[in-house]
Simulated assay, not measured.
Amino acid sequence: MKLLFGVLLLLFSADVLTQETLHRNPFMPVQAAQCPTAAIEEEQQVLSWALRGVIGRDDNWYGWIQTQTGGWIRIARQKPLPLFYWQLDRLLYGSAQFSDKSASRGTCRSRSIIELKLRK
């Protein structure tokens, strides 16, 4: 009986050890490990941007962002961004705030809002 119990215990533990959950990065939270790679890449992309200029008044503001590769993006509230997971939430003189589109559904990223300040 002890032998049968030992064999079953070994088989069960071998099955548990081969589960896919052990193949994830143990230093990342489980939710972050399930985050789509594209979402993480977009977050890093937005964090690498530099807000270089903002003009306008009232609700009609335009801004210019310089990307890490040296390219430029013109941003405005009514103009869509070249992003899927992030959107321009607020644009005022000196700052642009981007929000995670999926924040209301529970996000897998470390932040749901990124604010860029004007750099000179």
Rank of each mutant, 00 (worst) to 15 (best):
I75R: 01
F12H: 11
N25F: 11
L83M: 10
S112W: 03
T67N: 09
I113N: 08
A32R: 11
A76Q: 01
G106D: 06
C108G: 08
I65Q: 00
K117F: 15
G70L: 05
E43A: 10
F12C: 13
G94D: 09
Q31L: 11
Q45E: 06
V30H: 03
A96C: 03
L92E: 15
W86R: 01
Q31S: 11
Y62V: 01
Y62T: 01
M1A: 14
L51I: 05
R52Y: 08
Q97L: 10
W86K: 02
G56M: 02
A33M: 06
L91Y: 02
L92G: 14
E20R: 13
Q34W: 15
S104G: 11
I113S: 07
L91Q: 02
A38V: 12
E42G: 02
R52F: 00
F84E: 13
T67Y: 05
Q45D: 06
Q31H: 14
G56F: 00
L9C: 05
W64K: 05
A39K: 08
D89S: 07
R119P: 03
I73C: 05
Q44T: 03
P29D: 07
D100C: 08
L10Y: 11
P80M: 00
C35Y: 01
L10G: 09
A32M: 11
K79Y: 03
A103Q: 06
F84W: 11
Q68F: 07
M1Y: 14
T37G: 12
V54C: 06
P29K: 10
L118F: 11
S48P: 07
L83W: 05
R111K: 13
E115M: 10
D100Q: 09
T37Y: 07
I65P: 01
T67C: 05
F12S: 13
S48Q: 07
R90A: 11
R57K: 15
L3C: 13
L22H: 15
K101R: 12
P36C: 10
W49G: 00
L88W: 03
L88N: 02
W86Y: 05
G94R: 07
Q44N: 12
L88F: 04
S13E: 03
I55M: 08
R24P: 00
L92D: 12
C108K: 07
L17E: 14
W86M: 01
N60M: 06
S104M: 13
L92C: 12
V46P: 00
K79L: 04
K79Q: 10
L4R: 15
D59Y: 04
V7E: 02
R111S: 09
V16S: 09
G106V: 07
E41N: 06
S104F: 13
G53Q: 12
R90Y: 04
A14F: 13
E20T: 15
G63R: 00
C108F: 07
L3I: 15
R52K: 15
G70T: 05
E20A: 14
T21E: 14
M28C: 08
D59W: 04
A33H: 06
A32T: 14
S48H: 08
D89W: 02
L81F: 01
L17K: 15
S99L: 05
K117T: 12
V16T: 10
F5V: 14
G6L: 15
R119I: 13
A39N: 09
Y85D: 11
D100N: 12
A103P: 01
F27P: 04
A33R: 12
S13H: 06
S48L: 09
T69H: 08
